[in-house]
């Protein structure tokens, strides 16, 4: 399934949509996989996952019908 990337995560991965393995079905597993793929992300002060455009907790599950996005520290305003 494709997950949306933004900001420094997008720059690190070099793409705006990242294909993640089908076995990943919850936020904690997705974050662990991202840290394995891109160890430099561990230096960020936070890394949030949004499920269907809302911040999700680590235990939240998702399917390939959900919209998943990786949210690095925001810096609007």
């Amino acid at each position: 399934m494709g997950i949306l990337l933004f900001g420094v995560v997008k720059e690190t991965a070099g793409c705006a949509v990242l294909d993640c393995p089908a076995y990943i079905k919850d936020v904690a597993t997705l974050k662990r996989w991202l840290y394995e793929q891109y160890p430099s992300l561990q230096q960020l002060s936070s890394l949030m996952i949004a499920v269907n455009r809302s911040y999700a907790s680590d235990d939240q599950e998702f399917t390939d019908r959900d919209e998943i996005a990786v949210i690095p520290p925001v810096s609007g305003g």
């Binding site: 933004f6 900001g7 949004a50 996005a69 925001v74 810096s75 609007g76 305003g77």
Partner: peptide, 14 residues
């Protein structure tokens, strides 16, 4: 509003 926006709204400045 401005304090919360800077904490929660997914906008990134480069």
């Amino acid at each position: 509003v401005i304090d919360t926006l800077k904490e929660t709204v997914p906008i990134w400045k480069k």
